[in-house]
Design a protein around this nucleic acid. Structure first.
Lengths: 159, 159
DNA sequence: CATAAAATTTAAGCATACCTAAATTTATTA
DNA sequence: TAATAAATTTAGGTATGCTTAAATTTTATG
């Protein structure tokens, strides 16, 4: 039942998932742009994903996800969201967070991913201790700002 | 000044760093075992790292890190420690944490790594708020245990 | 010290995934 | 609708990093 996927194959799947969510299907060109490769590379990967039954791909036709492909892509996408939220919590700037969430979403042990998502859940939704949590976030943010100030003044001294 | 390294090259550097810390030098066999490849693959990588001036390598001789190599390896190793500590904080089991720290130590943006280490610092060393922090850890741990109990009883019901 | 065992290296090959350039197909527009 | 433009595909290559098997070198032992 389980399909072995390379990190890169997962990147392509998530890309297709996001594009099809927007416009119903994905063209080779869209996929290539999203993943950051040349169209010929995207074609190559479509053949592989198609042979694994994860995408519907016909030469010169639009690409869509099969049921199996969509299921896997949704899981990847959900992991992605978890890591994005997590990076925001630890105060990583938005643009960097978006980039690095892509890296985190691969390879980690399911248990690790589970713990990441519990952390996010604990921080954001902890239902009966909101004051405690908001205090945590507040303190961590102040701590980071203080550290940033230290960094800046160090840089200044070095020049 | 900066050297471009693949993820894999970093793995080898850290392996050599750890082995030499233990016994002063590393043999091809040690490196291969540590990285989890065949000796011939390790030889191949030694040639590359040597050509970049990161390791001292002579055919049939022990491998050591150059000054530059040691500097880079130390940075990688420190990142590794940060992620290991982090995974422990979010209650990832030790064995999995050791494995996944290797994955996290690559590719992430320096700012992201900085924020991870600040988080660890904040949780473990926050000097003037130890009661608050130990309370945080305690609460998060309870939360995870509760969730684990839920998982178990769900599994039980499904059988 | 000769020889057997162990370690290392070389050689040849494979898989992934990327690229450019040329060929082909599809879409657009004059 | 014919010609041109855009998109896609194919072909041929490259780089990384891995493997096994054979050759070589080093180390250990009878």
């Amino acid at each position: 039942m389980d399909v072995e996927l390379t990190e890169r194959a997962e990147d392509y799947l998530r890309a297709i998932y996001e594009i099809t969510a927007r416009k119903g299907y994905a063209r080779i060109r869209d996929i290539a742009r999203e993943v950051g490769v040349q169209p010929s590379s995207a074609v190559e990967m479509m053949r592989k994903l198609s042979s694994k039954g994860l995408v519907n791909y016909e030469k010169y036709g639009g690409v869509t996800l099969t049921e199996k492909g969509a299921e896997i892509a949704a899981a990847i996408s959900s992991r992605h969201e978890t890591f994005l939220k997590f990076l925001r919590i630890i105060q990583v700037p938005e643009e960097i967070a978006r980039r690095d969430a892509h890296i985190l979403e691969h390879q980690l042990d399911p248990k690790t991913i589970l713990q990441f998502s519990r952390f996010v859940e604990f921080i954001t939704n902890a239902p009966d201790r909101p004051r405690f949590i908001s205090r945590w976030m507040e303190l961590f943010k102040s701590y980071c700002e203080e550290e940033d100030r230290k960094l800046k003044s160090n840089n200044f001294r070095r020049r």
